[in-house]
Amino acid sequence: MYLESSIGTSRVKRGLADMLRGGVIMDVVNPEQAKIAEDSGAVAVMALERVPSDIRRDGGVARMSDPEMIVGIQKMVTIPVMAKSRIGHFAEAQILQALDVDFIDESEVLTPADEANHIDKWAFTVPFVCGATNLGEALRRIGEGACMIRSKGEAGTGNIVEAVRHLRTINAEIRRLHTADSSELYTLAKDLGAPLALVQEVAELGKLPVPLFCAGGISTPADAALVLQMGAEAVFVGSGIFKSSDPERMARAIVEATTHYQDASVLARVSTGLGDAMKGFETSTLDQRFAERGW
């Protein structure tokens, strides 16, 4: 069709991740929420049946969403629609690709399907995002073909502490590589459990070769500004919007805070009179830590 053209190249897949930078990706469970998200300036929506805080409350096995619900959301909005597959569940990913979703999140929020292997993401045309708690995990996912990394945080808690821990860890490990002597990179690659070529690339670039976003616990405009100032390039907000007392207002405030994250006067204005943020959990009381899923 096109002269020497190709679909699904790394540049095309990582390119969409680049287009989402500086934006807010919002979890939505129905077309009405998707509309509110788009109206509020979301850069993409994540279509799922239950937000993480409800998955946490309900227990049981959490799986890919019903295609009918995903298609309903695709019809409602013009922005990219993402959906989650279970870790290692490549058949769910095949289904999501057949539905023309724009991005797949191989997510620890769902119940893992494979305790040893993640999905071979190079086999897909659709781009993937994966979570990571440290640099080795991030580079293993990129080695498998992930086009975007999100620090995991602890989804469904409304508590930013784990997201901060994971972002700080990833950034500190990147700085370590960036200042390392080239002869040290072999042992550092072994210690990180990461492919040598990617370790060398990060050492050279001083950053990941794909965008680094932040997820898991962002529930206020100030939370978004915090992680962006720490180097996250965009934010995922899950339960934080639709579990707050005024979702539309919270959504708009987090979008504005994400653009003007360095301007404290804007942050003060958008943080004023927002109503109640989601209640949230103190993470030390959790029975199940989603962030521990993935290998």
């Binding site: 095309v12 023309d100 659709v126």
Partner: peptide
């Protein structure tokens, strides 16, 4: 097209 149809070409 949507993302799965995105491409690069000369």
């Amino acid at each position: 097209g949507r993302q799965v149809a995105s491409f690069e070409t000369l």
